[in-house]
Write a protein that binds this DNA or RNA. Sequence first.
RNA 1: GGAGAGAUGGCCGAGUGGACGAAGGCGCUCCCCUGCUAAGGGAGUAUACGGCUUAUACCCGUAUCGAGGGUUCGAAUCCCUCUCUCUCCGCCA
Length: 423
Amino acid sequence: MLDVKYLRADPEAVAVQLARRGFEFDVAGFQSLEERRKALQTRTEQLQAERNSRSKNIGKAKAQGQDIAPLLADVERLGGELDAARAELDSVQNSLTALTQGLPNLPHASVPDGKDENDNVEVRRWGDPRPAEGAKDHADLGEALGLMDFAMAAKLTGARFTVLRGQLARLHRALAQFMLDVHTTEHGYQEVYVPYIVNGTSLLGTGQLPKFGEDLFTLQGDHDWRLIPTAEVPVTNFLRDEILAAEELPQRWVAHTPCFRSEAGSAGRDTRGMIRQHQFDKVELVHASLPEHSYETLELLVSHAEAILQKLELPYRVVALCAGDMGASAAKTYDLEVWLPSQNTYREISSCSNCEAFQARRMLARYRHPETKKPELLHTLNGSGVAVGRAMVAVLENYQRPDGRIDVPTVLRPYMGGLEVIG
RNA sequence: GGAGAGAUGGCCGAGUGGACGAAGGCGCUCCCCUGCUAAGGGAGUAUACGGCUUAUACCCGUAUCGAGGGUUCGAAUCCCUCUCUCUCCGCCA
């Protein structure tokens, strides 16, 4: 959510900044709603104040044994007026909330202009991409080894799921373990284990709701429960309704969880292989930061994700997303894209964002300012460190031998019982 | 799943219809006193929002005693629904 005060003070400036994302903000509509809200709220609160003071008088009169009948008659009309005013205020406020909760974050000044992924800006590259010639894709490699089974997954569930067996199942686990170990022992993260099911309030806090509910799997039953689309949701919501001491910042958490996405609207995209699944594992990094440090924290976060790819010796590039390609909660996002020889291109394997106070404002995540002693919104950041499924895809494709067997990256061998080659 | 008890401010804890945003204690902040490794005295100490405002400073107002709804002129207090916690039983990893 954006700062309402700023929205009111300078809606045109907000509209200009949101236009960079291709988002059209209806300034006139907002302002007319605001005017009505202001008038109604003032009136409602006045009526409430009046009712409160009269009710107190009734109490006093009663205590003194006076006749309260005339006072009751006097206050009678207030009830109806108050109810009407309140109802009208509620409806205006609901419209306003719907409008403001639907607004995406303002892009940071350093975010490049552009409307989609084609306008993203490459920041740097690492490693030497192996040529595409003769490279098989991960699905062919895995199926040929007999260790990756899409047909079985389709039988069990449906499209966009995978069954892994044997050394590939272990490779998948090894990757997750390796990433967790690097982040906890070298980068100072606290490992956390969290629910894979969250309530609607949590999803509202991180911004998946109210606008992006169709991307989520909803559970049946009495609870307002959904499967997490990313560990960002449960972990960031640690901070909801909390006021941290300034000394408690920064906080760094890492969680390995499955992620569930309905992939609504992705029909036909990446239907082959493990690139785009309804269920995938991810190691997620979440930071809570002082506002003044959040941009250096973002660079740090990216470097932590990069460290994983470097240790795995997977070629990648870092891309700054343009304003039009960023997620709604982000003020600035870097993607890490790993080299996939079968596609002769780089594909997203991590996305690292500074949400500034956008999520913090929704979830009232604050810290106590050491000088003013007042609660202030903190900044939240999150990034994949990295997607486990896609990391496995990248390992298969980049470490494939001409005979279809797979070299095990050196750093993973301790996690694979010393195994050097799969197949 | 069954039975019972509970949810109040940073913490503990009082409060069963009226001057209660909430006694008291602890903690914390500031001041005073005290020359000693102690103690005492005083003041202050929730959050969100609205109005006013150059102001996130005052001031005024509204809301919040787990959440939502209801009764009432008036609800922390009464009623309903839900959530969570604890105890016992059952079941289970």
